[in-house]
Nucleic acid binder design. Sequence first.
DNA 1: CGTTTTCATTGCGCCATGACAAAGAACGCG
DNA 2: CGCGTTCTTTGTCATGGCGCAATGAAAACG
Lengths: 246, 246
Amino acid sequence: MCDFHEMKSAARFSSHARLDESLLSELPAFSKLENQVIGEILEQAISRRYDAGACVFEEGDRADHFYLLLDGYIRVVRITPDGEQVIALHIPSGQLFGIAKALGRDTYPATAITAKESLALSWPMRLWDDFAARYDGFATETYKTVGQRMGEMNNRIVEMATQQVEQRIACALLRLINQSGRKVSDGIEINFPITRQDLSEMTGTTLHTVSRMLSAWEKVGVVKSGRKKITVCDPHQLVVLSTAKP
Amino acid sequence: MCDFHEMKSAARFSSHARLDESLLSELPAFSKLENQVIGEILEQAISRRYDAGACVFEEGDRADHFYLLLDGYIRVVRITPDGEQVIALHIPSGQLFGIAKALGRDTYPATAITAKESLALSWPMRLWDDFAARYDGFATETYKTVGQRMGEMNNRIVEMATQQVEQRIACALLRLINQSGRKVSDGIEINFPITRQDLSEMTGTTLHTVSRMLSAWEKVGVVKSGRKKITVCDPHQLVVLSTAKP
DNA sequence: CGTTTTCATTGCGCCATGACAAAGAACGCG
DNA sequence: CGCGTTCTTTGTCATGGCGCAATGAAAACG
């Protein structure tokens, strides 16, 4: 297990002393619920802050909690027998994760690591069935999320099977800016620190190749990149690159 | 839409004139139900036979039915903009498929094609919620299946990201014989016709490379292969190949 | 039974990428 | 502020496996 830290203060994330119903009421999983009911759910939640790079749970751990990411970014990672990492998925704030029970598993199928400082709620997994039964729309909305993630994974399989490295990296970048892009003066910036290594683990290549690719793109003005930071200046051109044939 | 044919006779699949409760009662999705309830479910089902290579539904079609594969084998396929096929998944008999509704979708996310002559039941999708609500264990068991498929997809992503072609093909073969292997005199044979092309679409490579690989393996006695047919003689050795480092 | 179609095998050349190596740049820490 | 660490860039080289092309073999067809 990794170490994490009790939340000292939620000040960075909420101006209220205690967690507020409005936090949840906009999220799909809870959108159909009354404020009062949400309050009830919140009372059972554990809230925690995680440092950047902290591990929330590891692949194979007994799945005894499920989580809701309030703020930050989660990286779902798998590690091969010979120590290579593969990033399977990124989870943006507002989504549930670690929902092994929903998939009929009793251990987590992958490791969850924060990509930056994050805040998450969690509930004991035994409440899952409760939630699903009692709260209207919870199950449905959850499975919608599962469906989306399956779709994403599916796309990645197709990508990896048919596309060249350049296109794969372009796709990965596009996904990232869609999911967590932040508009800045000279384009759209990825909202959390990301290294070439990370990008290579998302696309099944090496950090060297990613570095070369970014350099090349920077030369033609499609992106600007710095240490742990990437800004996409010309998203449209990136779309072209992501679908270009050899 | 592809063409399919009304089932003329279920004789090949069942000795009873009409569908029998025992057909379903062993399947996970229905395992917890009384025979009488199963009868009720069966009465609402449509039963159909499909020729080998027939298309059950296509990616993007309105998802108006969900299916249960009674006999045969289904290949879940996606097609890229430039016409390349990628085989995302194989579904063995006894499993549900086309369960878009369970994933919050209203169109099918991929195309389903029979790998050999097959028999499937189907129900109108509007019964889904009914089934989930009324039949104990149906939803749970279904999501277990979804979870398994996600796990498989996840593994494939890791494979494609980290392994070489030889290892990927070995993995694919192992999956196939696990899922639908048939013991024969000189090893384990894949239970439905499969071409090098198919195998290449499962592993993201070309039929040429697959052919070469099989030839090489045949030379050392790991497999025997013929037209549309592959027999694994030495599964253990194949496991070694599937994990060997360069 | 001959013809056509589908599927499989194999050789050859090339190129995208991985492997290795070394140096530079930004950051964090005492 | 200097030092170690982490991250990035760039060069050179080797090669896996893809593209292309031609042949062969088995099934399907009529």
